[in-house]
């Protein structure tokens, strides 16, 4: 059974995934990219939907009811500059990775830490690919300068 602290942390993770799902939905709906790029956006959107739904299942009645407003507002505003789509999504992925990792550091449940770990390893792949669409700079693809949205 999850402790109250663990529930709060997993709710924070789910709220961030809800925001990521909605940001990707917005990016997909703009249809401003090639078919291949559109396919990539839809893939990443489907992943964030899966993460949100999985956490929703874990939390059941205690699940988040609202997305992370801070993250959604920030990244939605950044999306207004179409030329920075990939860079914005890269920052979103890195923020999700940093946040989930900070949550892993505080979760007492190893099982749920493991779930978040499996999410972050794929978000790291998202980030590497988004970086590769932006630049050939390896640091951009390999490093995560983003800050966690939850305090460590």
């Amino acid at each position: 059974m999850l402790s109250e602290d663990d529930i709060s942390l997993l709710v924070a993770a789910q709220a961030l995934e809800l925001a990521a799902r909605d940001i990707y939905a917005s990016a997909v709906s703009r249809k401003s990219k090639s078919d291949e790029e559109q396919g990539l956006l839809e893939l990443m959107h489907s992943h964030h939907t899966a993460y949100e739904q999985t956490l929703n299942g874990v939390l059941s009645k205690r699940a988040a009811t609202e997305r992370n407003a801070e993250a959604y507002t920030k990244f939605f505003a950044l999306l207004s500059d179409a030329s920075k789509l990939w860079a914005t999504l890269l920052e979103l992925e890195n923020t999700a990775i940093a946040t989930h990792t900070a949550i892993i550091e505080r979760l007492t449940s190893a099982k749920h830490a493991s779930l978040l770990a499996s999410i972050t390893t794929i978000e790291a792949r998202h980030a590497a690919m988004l970086a590769s669409l932006t630049s050939t700079n390896l640091d951009l693809a390999l490093e995560n300068p983003a800050q966690s949205l939850v305090t460590q």
């Binding site: 990792t101 892993i104 190893a110 972050t120 390893t121 790291a124 792949r125 590497a128 390999l142």
Partner: peptide
């Protein structure tokens, strides 16, 4: 130890980035 779990997965994330590239 939860802190060690986070330390471990931070490295795992970079290995994932390597694999993707």
């Amino acid at each position: 130890d939860p802190k060690l779990r986070a330390d471990a997965i931070r490295i795992g994330q970079q290995e994932s980035r390597h694999a993707a590239l």
